[in-house]
Design a protein around this nucleic acid. Structure first.
Lengths: 256, 256
DNA sequence: AGGCGCTTGTGAAGGCGTGCACAAATCGCG
DNA sequence: CGCGATTTGTGCACGCCTTCACAAGCGCCT
């Protein structure tokens, strides 16, 4: 765990670049591999094959091998990957060897839950400060942290090296908060507010919108429903969905 | 809203296909367009150009036009898109003309927040029931809904037509909950638990992992830090580290 | 009525990501 | 010591998605 050296790599010197620029898709999967690896380590596995790790992470084994090859990680042919070594390597690449400080802005419904979410802590992060603009919420203690007013952000940022800002405010406040975070030097932002933010170049921005996920599922529900509602009797009567929408049959090609 | 017909399409009857099979990437963006459109409608806009809507939704205008063309939506050349009409069309395609019932399982830290999240309600969904396996939580009232024991899921599902299941349990319980949801006929699941779920074919599964988002940001932080720490001196220091991984930022990896 | 400016819809090209299939490499065993 | 079983690493082809660039269409103004 506290081991920062990575022993045991084959003799070739300089074979592992410091920070290869990985495909974004690979980066997005590394955390999943990491979680699967931790599970494996806890259950006593010392090595794992690409097939085994892939299924534990829910991906294709060829994809996993290619991902790992991108970061220069060496498995052993005929054996597999060393679990502990791979954990170290991925954690290093993801920059998890230092426990990054996270500032959470917006302690409403969702923010409150995020402040208490132990998944952040258990996976390499440290919630360094909580902020809110609502004076009524300032002073409240959540999970051992006191909510500060957003105006104190500059002062707190000067004390703690805040690496990542999390925005859990209403949409109307999000852009302003983002600007303030950028102003104090934060270069990575995770946005939970349902709105588009604009940030200067060099600042990384990711967004999580819970309602959007549901809407995507809703689309698939809708599609499945319309398909099953049409057994095979093409064309005859248009089936009406509960909402009142007439549905033409799938072979709408007749129109074109 | 209650308008279910899509008037104004050029002479061709039935010009709006019921459910074209859209590219997945397009589906994922439609909710974003929808939100931007609602904002525009509230601010009095009756029409909007692809450029305007694209910037409001944070995407490229060509991409937006292609997305909309996929769902057969017709704008007017020289003018733009009719905001109200486009809202109807997207809501129809996404299956939001009916208010789908959502069952939320796991009323812990995160689940509690989700139960109170008004973004679900305001965007076409209805939280129909809350479940938990912990007897201590059963009976608690959240946002006007009483938490039921997970064993009651079959009975409740028989009463309410549950379209989507949301899992906000610990990872250890998630697969079991997913199985139970599938057993009562749920065909769309949104998983917040940090684990890989397996579901039968025909069941749609999406995952949101808050910690993974942070880890992705952490990677970019790490990368940015290592780049600024390396002026231009190619070579010696960064290429070779016999132990295995080269280290660009000494403070980072060497800290005990 | 006709032309002009604006905007959509789309063909084509390029890039990225995925998955297959196989050569290369390593271990264990006789 | 050599051979076979096993597994990695990767070249290659394919498909999806993005982006550019432009012709076609529409309204407005003269």
């Amino acid at each position: 765990m506290s081991q920062h050296r990575h022993p045991g790599a084959p003799g070739r010197a300089g074979a592992v670049p410091a920070l290869p620029d990985l495909p974004e898709a690979t980066v997005a999967r590394l955390p999943e591999y990491l979680r699967a690896l931790h599970n494996l380590a806890e259950t006593g596995h010392e090595t794992v094959s690409s097939e085994g790790l892939a299924s534990a992470a829910g991906v294709n084994s060829a994809k996993l091998r290619k991902d790992l090859s991108h970061l220069g990680s060496y498995g052993t042919r005929g054996v597999g990957y060393d679990v502990a070594l791979l954990i170290d390597q991925i954690e290093y690449v993801l920059g998890l060897t230092q426990r990054r400080a996270v500032a959470l802005v917006g302690v409403g419904n969702l923010g409150h839950a995020l402040a208490g979410y132990d998944g952040f802590v258990s996976r390499g992060f440290r919630i360094a400060a909580l902020f809110d603009a609502d004076a009524a919420r300032v002073g409240e203690e959540i999970n051992g942290l006191v909510v500060r007013h957003i105006d104190e952000l500059p002062r707190v940022a000067a004390e703690e090296a805040i690496a990542i800002g999390v925005i859990a405010t209403p949409a109307s406040a999000a852009q302003s908060v983002a600007d303030q975070l950028v102003a104090v030097g934060v270069t990575s932002i995770l946005n939970f507010a349902p709105c588009v933010l604009s940030v200067p170049e060099g600042v990384d921005l990711r967004k999580v919108d819970l309602a959007i996920e549901l809407q995507i599922l809703s689309f698939h529900e809708h599609r499945k429903a319309s398909l099953t509602a049409l057994p095979a009797t093409g064309g005859s009567a248009l089936t009406a969905l509960p909402g009142g929408l007439a549905v033409t049959d799938p072979q709408e090609a007749i129109g074109t």
